[in-house]
Design a protein around this nucleic acid. Structure first.
Length: 370
DNA sequence: AACGCGTGGTG
DNA sequence: TCACCAAGCGT
């Protein structure tokens, strides 16, 4: 335990909050989702921003709102369209949950998002942070939205060296932020702390001399701003070899399959294949996986391309082989759906980034089957 | 509480 | 496998 311990009065914290808001008025970032107060748009933005950089989100956000301008439009759309709009953004459960929640709101709530944080957090994909963010930004509720930025800024501001991932620490940080929060301005207050975290109080080499809270920052006074917040190191990431078959029939159609809705890349399409077992040769692995998942016979040809891909929790080397369908009608044993498609038709389906690289290869390097 | 869940950017 | 990170959530 260390740091802020009620030495300062709440008055001082309130003053810090106002100083922060004054800074925000002058320096706030001009971001697309800050242009209107439409709760649906704010919701979409907050889901996209989970664990994802602002610069990455902007283009997705604009395309998504163009494609699904209203909550009703999103609810009416097929999941495949939503996943296609999410393609490449990662954490695809966000798209599935957003879609499911939109349908629920239309059916059960007459298309109106709830305004209170505790009701918002009942929506799938909306946790404590997102519920507070929507409630404060879209509905003006006094709720602290404790995200990674706020944790970092508050740990430094109050010199807190407890693990910010722990529930107790988060409760403490939230209480401190609540004491700073100017009543009725939580939306701006939350976003001010986020902008401060993004522009000044950055993870590495914070720009303390530019900080509006310079005189109040405990960690800066002690010279330990670079040591906070403390952070657990990531564990070892295992490696997997994975095979994928680009399986052609006699009419220039290639076989693609759809992954189950739960788990990694759930609901996305892929070139069928799977994990290599210890000691197994790559072509043998592909034969086995195709036999298990689709119950067809194929001829495995040349290795087309090798792709290194990094997931959060493992490394993957993906080996894509040129294959030919020999016999058997494919059955969906390990997948949700399957399709024979031409190269041009692949555009209609959502793939993960590793499989998109296979597609790029097929289009650039003149395909061997021609 | 700890882990599974994506991707691209950065020093 | 360079490590680490970015507006977290569900189980």
């Amino acid at each position: 335990m260390s740091g802020f311990d009620d030495v300062e009065a709440n008055d001082d914290l309130a003053i810090i909050g106002h100083r922060l808001l004054a800074w925000y008025e002058r320096h706030r970032r001009d971001l697309p989702w800050r242009h209107d107060q439409n709760p649906y748009a704010i919701w979409v933005a907050e889901i996209m921003l989970q664990q994802t950089r602002v610069e990455t989100v902007i283009a997705y956000y604009q395309r998504f709102l163009q494609r699904f301008p209203t909550l009703e439009a999103l609810a009416k759309a097929p999941l495949d369209d939503v996943l296609k709009a999410w393609e490449g953004l990662g954490y695809y459960a966000r798209a599935r949950n957003l879609h499911r929640a939109a349908r629920w709101v239309v059916q059960e709530m007459n298309g109106r998002l709830p305004a209170r944080s505790e009701d918002l957090s009942r929506l799938p994909g909306v946790g404590q942070y997102t519920a507070s963010a929507i409630a404060s930004i879209a509905f003006g509720q006094d709720a602290v939205a404790l995200d990674g930025n706020l944790r970092r800024v508050l740990c430094r501001l109050f010199g807190i060296d407890d693990d910010p991932g722990r529930t107790n620490t988060q409760r403490r940080l939230t209480e401190l932020a609540e004491a700073m929060l100017p009543s009725g301005q939580a939306g701006d207050f939350n976003q001010a702390l986020m902008d401060l975290g993004a522009m000044i109080c950055t993870p590495t080499t914070p720009q303390c001399l530019l900080c509006p809270l310079l005189g109040s920052c405990r960690s800066q006074q002690e010279g330990i701003q670079n040591e906070l917040p403390i952070r657990a190191t990531r564990g070892h990431r295992p490696h997997r070899d994975v095979t994928a078959g680009v399986i052609w029939d006699d009419n220039d159609h290639v076989l693609i399959t759809r992954r189950p809705l739960d788990g990694l890349l759930g609901g996305l399409w892929e070139f069928p294949g799977g994990k290599r077992r210890p000691g197994e040769a790559l072509p043998a692995c592909l034969h086995r996986e195709i036999s298990e998942e689709l119950a067809i016979q194929i001829q495995v040809g040349e290795l087309l391309v090798t792709i290194e891909h990094v997931f959060t929790h493992f490394f993957m080397t993906l080996y894509a082989f040129d294959c030919r369908w020999l016999s058997g009608s494919p059955k969906c044993l390990g997948c949700l759906d399957l399709q024979w498609v031409t190269l041009d038709e692949l555009d209609a389906y959502a793939f993960g980034v590793a499989d998109q690289k296979i597609i790029s290869f097929l289009r650039s390097d003149s395909p061997s089957h021609i």
